[in-house]
């Protein structure tokens, strides 16, 4: 009797222990993830005087939106926001088109040498972008379109500081991590049953018709996944943006130059003699980062559920 009780007790402790350990772990790790964001929000809304106040830890004593005002002014936020959004939308749409087509081509429309070309896709994923960026840079700086442009205009065109490098690389599916997107699309299209395609064929649909009206509507999870990744990675990318757009106002370059601009501005406000307070600088910089992240967080809140579901159905795994 007693022994039974003890074993029942051990069992129920076990049953309770794992959920407890799990929730401790999950809450702890969630805290680690959310901590920087919450901290940034708390820093962003406090006044300068609260920075050194020992009693202010999380909730500021004097609320102030001055940090936001500075950060918005220094980053030229609204213009930057519009520029960045335009750039990201443009590359996302073009990447979707080119990678979707290529992914479907590799998955279902086999031709001689298509497997060899797909090995090329894998190669583009594996080679670090730094290995090839100098020739790409020089090529786009003196762009000739395979010798065509000098014939018409007389000399090559400098595409730097325009959206053209992004347009050209993403319409050809060779933008940042383009190979990965082709891979995702290919895996997904391979998972769509062949019968669907054959039924369309029996009904007399052409290849293009099959693709646009049968395959694409079925590929929405993959499209959302690729669109979100492409948008976000373009938004955060500093490697290509600083290379192609050294002086344009997009989020990545503005953020990168924010600390520098800010220290100049604050030093000049103090009369040029004293150095600006590095803590205050850091506070405004954090506000800038928060402002840059904000659109992404909003986007994520809306697409998050869809995103998690879609990855599960994307078949990256298969």
């Amino acid at each position: 009797m007693i022994r039974e009780r003890i074993s029942w007790f051990i069992k129920s402790v076990r049953r309770l222990l794992w959920p407890f350990a799990r929730s401790v772990l999950l809450i702890g790790l969630s805290f680690v993830i959310l901590y920087p964001i919450v901290k940034k929000i708390s820093l962003a809304v406090r006044a300068k005087t609260d920075l050194y106040s020992p009693i202010v830890v999380w909730i500021p004593q004097n609320f102030s939106l001055e940090n936001f005002r500075y950060a918005i002014e220094m980053m030229d936020y609204w213009k930057t926001l519009i520029n960045t959004t335009l750039l990201c939308l443009l590359t996302t749409v073009l990447t979707l088109i080119s990678c979707g087509l290529a992914g479907y081509g590799f998955a279902r429309l086999k031709f001689k040498g298509s497997n060899l070309l797909f090995a090329g896709v894998i190669l583009t994923i594996l080679v670090p972008p730094t290995t090839i960026f100098i020739p790409v840079y020089l090529n786009l700086k003196d762009f000739t379109l395979m010798g065509l442009i000098p014939l018409i205009a007389g000399k090559s065109v400098n595409l730097m500081d325009s959206f053209w490098p992004f347009v050209l690389t993403s319409i050809t599916g060779n933008s940042f991590k383009g190979g990965l997107f082709i891979f995702i699309f290919r895996q997904f299209f391979r998972g769509i049953p062949r019968e669907l395609e054959e039924a369309a064929y029996v009904d007399g649909a052409s290849v293009t018709k099959t693709f646009t009206s049968i395959m694409l509507p079925n590929a929405i999870p993959a499209i959302i996944t690729v669109a979100l990744f492409s948008f976000v990675w373009q938004w955060n990318d500093s490697f290509y943006t600083t290379m192609y757009l050294p002086s344009a106002k997009v989020m990545a370059t503005q953020l990168a130059s924010l600390p520098y601009n800010l220290s100049i501005k604050l030093t000049s406000m103090l009369g040029g003699s004293a150095k600006a307070d590095p803590f205050y600088l850091s506070m405004v910089q954090d506000t800038g980062i928060l402002l840059a992240m904000l659109p992404l967080i909003i986007l994520y809140i809306f697409t998050q559920r869809y995103f998690v579901e879609s990855i599960e159905r994307t078949g990256i795994v298969g």
Binding site: C99, L101, F106, S114, T131, I132, I134, P135, L168, N174
Partner: peptide, 27 residues
């Protein structure tokens, strides 16, 4: 299908040659 497959892959192929293979060799 094979012809269309090639057409679908073509944009990527152009980019692959001009933004990957040629730069790789040049580098």
């Amino acid at each position: 299908k094979a012809v269309w497959g090639f057409i679908y892959v073509l944009p990527w192929l152009i980019g692959f040659i001009s933004f990957f293979i040629i730069p790789l060799v040049t580098s």
